[in-house]
Design a protein around this nucleic acid. Sequence first.
DNA 1: GTTATTTGACCAGT
DNA 2: ACTGGTCAAATAAC
Length: 339
Amino acid sequence: MAGGGGGTTAAEKLIVDAQKSTNQLKDLLAKLLPRAEEGGGAVEAILSHMSESLSQALASLQRGASTGDRRLPVPPEASLSSHGQSVQNSGGRLVSTRSGQRRSRADGSSHRIILQHGARGDSYLWRKYGQKDILGARFARSYFKCGQRAGCPARKQVQQSDADPSRLEITYIGAHTCHELPSPSCATPAANSIDDDTRRNTTSHRRLPAAVAVPSTMQTLEDHVLASDMTAWTPSMEQEISSPSWLFIPSPACSQSELLSVAEAEAEAEVPELQPDASTAPVEHKKARDWERFVHIQLQSDLDGKIIPFRVKFCQRQDDDAVDKDLRSELIQEAGDVR
DNA sequence: GTTATTTGACCAGT
DNA sequence: ACTGGTCAAATAAC
């Protein structure tokens, strides 16, 4: 690990925080089981929190002991949201007169997460605003802005790994300022309480094939927990994957291209599986009431390139009376595998 | 008509 | 000069 004792301690606290969130997820799922559609948004919120905590943990590790327990630096809002004025060039095209289009990420506010197939990403709503071929890379890089609330400076870049096309390398840049917005509302477009911005941004649903917007496959608690989405999946990426195998929870936290590509993939996939890593295949009891699954994620430092593997364990113990479902979730750092 | 995505051009850091 | 990041017009989808 690049950091010293101080940074590591801070990261540990954040990871514990993430574990608390997963426990909340357990409670919510148990309570909302009969009304799983309404509960989906709250689950999304908790998973978002988990993701955020992990992100901050990584940032702490990157900073090391010298910086103590400071929070993630938030990029100056103005630098991301003020784009200056535009003028028309000779061809009639609007040419921006803004300055500072390209921003440095040397402030450490970025971090990369590598997701494999089946691993769940964050649950924010992202809007794609660009795609770029990168020199020396087989796959284009996609650029996303947070679309959850206007003005949120958070961005992410998604690129399919050259070495392992089954991996998505996701770089998060900037902190979300949309936390105040209750995610459950975001995830339930039908709710009357959501504000106009949110309602506008959740209309990506309308472009979905109806069969995917409300998939009949999402009927059980296990389905919800095991469901995975690809948070930055573009059609071009999808074409490169020969055998997609994931199930999907419809959520406004995905862009149109994400939903559509997953929809197409879902049509081809026979059985939803969550086996992102064959070396630690999940112990599955398909028909039994007890089951457990693992989702593997990796965090990679932008500074030293170190990859820190984690796995999230979901398991359920259910009594024979089938009244109390005991869904557990646990975040586990996979020791001895930092590289 | 509205909204999201695509894509070529622009801009700035290296 | 090259390259990556962003903008915004054009296009697609609904």
